[in-house]
Design a protein around this nucleic acid. Sequence first.
DNA 1: CCTATTTATGAGCATATCCACATATACTTG
DNA 2: CAAGTATATGTGGATATGCTCATAAATAGG
Lengths: 114, 114
Amino acid sequence: MDRRAPLSKDALELVAHRFAVLSEPMRLRLIHALFGGEMSVNALVGETGGTQANISRHLQVLAQANVLARRKDGLQVFYSIADPSIFRLCDLVCGSLEKQFSRKAGAFTGNASR
Amino acid sequence: MDRRAPLSKDALELVAHRFAVLSEPMRLRLIHALFGGEMSVNALVGETGGTQANISRHLQVLAQANVLARRKDGLQVFYSIADPSIFRLCDLVCGSLEKQFSRKAGAFTGNASR
DNA sequence: CCTATTTATGAGCATATCCACATATACTTG
DNA sequence: CAAGTATATGTGGATATGCTCATAAATAGG
């Protein structure tokens, strides 16, 4: 494994895109809401206080990135966390931020530690 | 720790911003170049092939987010990785992406595992 | 002091992203 | 099939982000 590999442009863009998907507060709010298990779009709208259109779009983004899974049942669509690495990712970032400001910024992980 | 806490808007924005900082390919390239230790701006310009102005700006972003540290010595400014959680973050994301596509996307971690 | 070198920054353009509003689509029930 | 409910999508406007070119600021050497 050559540490100095050209870092194929494709690989870089993939990683960057993964981070980009997680870089919107509303999307983080959705992910956090799903820490407790799958929820319908409507339930997520209620939980987050966003508009239906906006929530739906964010869910598309998260699902296309394979962060969330989509399950359709009749009229409703249920989303759930598909990529378990999300839990550790959030723990890592929150931990790092907590070190920087010894207060605040800790609320996000909740009890995500699994 | 109430998992259903309001997720203070501030905390969410902090986490989102941290991810946003890592969501640009050129910034990831810079971080990867620094896996081997501190480097001057000029060295990073050479290593990444970007323009001096652009690299300088990206380095500002990373330093302000406390991802990188800045050390000035005479004319040169040396940057290095300040937040060790970056290593695990990249490992996590790369690992997750590798599972999705069982090929490619693995180049980024290099030998970051510390 | 004058010049060269290294890094940072101001300005402007191009593009991407988010949001809200309206509307379309999918499905269920009567 | 008509109507209602849940979800998705087209569109446009506002804002943010990244890039380049030119230039400023800091420092070292002669």
